[in-house]
Design a protein around this nucleic acid. Structure first.
Lengths: 251, 251
DNA sequence: CAGGAATTTGCACGAATATGCGTATATTTT
DNA sequence: AAAATATACGCATATTCGTGCAAATTCCTG
């Protein structure tokens, strides 16, 4: 295990538990306490934590988890999610891609809709745990930890057996010429495959994703059934996409 | 192998694993560490990764994760989980069943173990999101919402392609005569199948599960490699299981 | 096609980094 | 005050790193 990775882990644990204990860390990571103490000393010097006898504490006490989560999901994303959820009809099969925006769709899915939700994101399934009517199909595969989605050959095969009515595609960038893109080749391939297995594909995009391009193209600009954007986006910044033939929905 | 190809491979590996180690790359690609180090140096200059001593990390890996994790697991379950985690050796493939007890294993998995964790529980994957070395394979299928595990034919097929060294089986009841059981027929079938695909099967059981029976048997009493129970359980209540030939471990 | 320039790779070696141990010191607990 | 625990420092050792250099390969150009 890399040293900087270990320090990141200590910080993570500090955020989670509100404290770390030198002895416990040494135990857990199977390293000498000296090493841990050295880490803590250095991180304290970098003002990353507060060193105390026996371990370390966060510099500023953390906010409770729930308020923080509310904060990261912006009002903008909630509006997009609500709009997308309203497009879903009872009886349909919906493929939900990973990502925080699509998690909003799952969270706001009307409780009286009897739908089938397919996803390769375990995070999304968590959002649907308490939905009374949704039937959830989980696509398995090798897990990409940074985006928490299943990938690889197993995922591709499982996806091939699905026919979805709607696919809500998660992307990192949209560009009038370069289309819809994301940062990872493997993920792009998976997403493209899902789109091919779905009758319609919609993209939810917040303002900062417009007119940007990431390394790996998923679909060309006109490859989707619609683009859902916040209603407060300037009209003129949408015209390139309108001209490219993409139906646009304002949420 | 072309240089640019190699660099792409390094990036890919970085995305997949969340880290790369210079030494390991040199070994795998059969190149000198110098070459790898040069690559990493150059890619760091191009802002493609973050160079650290020993290897490299993604640029912005660990945003604070505010997932609510008020671990309300009993001390008893934590002890069982810790014991089970200590049985796992680096390099092994471990199948983790769903359930709160098995979640404890995932949570307490030593951070320096390079293991492959297979699971059909999206909840378990969440516990492993920040493990630096664990490779996570998610088994997909139709999701049982009450226990949050993937089930059905798709899950059965996916499981059949796995060979695990250890399977930690989650159960709801153990009985000297009726064996290991759970409340759902489908789940029982899945669990039995996983056990068949694993070299060893262990069961973690808290006191209240002993001497009880649920409708659907998973395995007979002697069908497992070991039973892990809290050390404060009365010795005499374990003798029926000892007599049935089940190795017992006290955690 | 010949020959020089640029790139790539591996090796040597001193410098930097990481880790564990022993020992002395500081802090907390009893 | 004594015991237990935690800490800091110096030192030894093992990796890992960066640089200079040379050999091999590829590319370019006349």
């Amino acid at each position: 295990m890399l040293t900087s990775q270990r320090k990141a882990l200590i910080l993570d644990r500090l955020r989670r538990n509100g404290q770390v204990i030198a002895k416990a860390l040494a135990d857990d990571l199977e390293l000498s306490e000296d090493t841990i103490r050295r880490d803590l000393r250095e991180m304290a010097a970098e003002k990353l934590l507060k060193r105390v006898h026996g371990g370390a504490l966060p510099l500023a006490p953390d906010l409770p988890d729930f308020s923080a989560r509310q904060a990261v999901s912006s009002e903008e994303k909630r509006r997009l999610g609500a709009y997308a959820a309203s497009m879903i009809k009872s009886g349909q099969t919906v493929f939900l891609d990973g990502g925080t925006t699509n998690a909003e769709i799952a969270r706001q899915l009307p409780k009286n809709l009897a739908v089938t939700i397919v996803t390769h994101s375990p995070t999304i399934t968590g959002e649907l745990e308490h939905h009374p009517l949704a039937e959830v199909i989980l696509i398995g595969g090798k897990l990409y930890k940074h985006s928490m989605v299943a990938t690889g050959a197993a995922a591709m095969v499982a996806i091939a057996s699905i026919r979805a009515d709607i696919f809500f595609l998660g992307i990192t960038a949209i560009h009038p010429v370069h289309g819809f893109s994301t940062g990872d080749f493997e993920e792009a391939a998976i997403k493209r495959h899902i789109a091919q297995c779905s009758a319609e594909t919609y993209v939810l995009a917040t303002a900062e994703k417009l007119d940007a391009a990431s390394p790996c193209q998923i679909l060309p600009t006109k490859g989707v059934s619609g683009l859902i954007v916040p209603s407060d986006i300037p009209k003129e910044s949408l015209t390139p996409y309108r001209n490219a033939g993409v139906p646009i929905f304002l949420a």
